[in-house]
Simulated assay, not measured.
Amino acid sequence: MANQQELFFEAIKAALPEYQNMAQSIAEVLEVSTNEAYKKIRGSSILNLQQIIKLSDSFRVPFIYKPDQLPTVTFDYLSVDQEIPNMLLYLQDLLKNLKQIQQSKHKHITITTDDIPLFHFFKYPELTCFKLFFWSDSVMNTDVKFDPSGFAAEIIEISKELNQIYLEIPCTEIWSKDTVHGTIEQIRYAFEAGYITKALAEQIIEQVRYCLTDMNMYAISSKKTIDPAHTFNWYNCDVLGSISYLVDFKDSMACYNRFNTFNYLRTEDQPYCKQTKQWMQGLIMKSVSFSGQGKSTGTNTCIMLLPSVINY
Rank of each mutant, 00 (worst) to 15 (best):
F259Y: 15
I111W: 01
A193K: 14
N233S: 13
P85S: 05
Y189L: 07
F8I: 06
D147F: 02
D68P: 03
E154C: 05
M285Q: 14
K123F: 07
M304E: 14
Q278S: 10
M22K: 12
W279F: 12
V239Y: 14
I196A: 02
E18G: 11
K224W: 03
Q5V: 08
M87Y: 09
A190I: 01
S58E: 10
I64T: 08
P117S: 04
I155Y: 05
A15R: 05
S56W: 02
S138W: 11
D251H: 13
E31K: 15
S287I: 06
D143E: 11
F290P: 00
I155M: 09
M140A: 10
P307Y: 02
N233A: 10
N311Q: 12
K13D: 10
Q92L: 12
R258W: 09
N48K: 12
L162H: 02
R42M: 05
K66T: 10
E206Y: 14
M304C: 09
A27E: 02
N260M: 05
A153T: 11
Q293C: 03
S289I: 06
G150C: 06
Q102Y: 15
P17C: 09
I109F: 03
K274Y: 08
T113R: 02
L88C: 00
Q50H: 11
S56D: 00
L49C: 05
T276C: 10
F191H: 13
E126C: 06
D238R: 13
N35I: 12
V180K: 04
Q103C: 09
V239K: 14
D251F: 01
Q186P: 01
I196G: 00
G294H: 01
R188L: 05
I303T: 07
D114S: 15
L200P: 00
E168S: 14
G241Q: 05
S159V: 03
V247A: 11
I243W: 04
T113E: 05
K123M: 09
S242L: 13
F130Y: 08
C211N: 12
Y312P: 08
L94H: 13
E18L: 11
I204L: 08
T276G: 03
M285V: 11
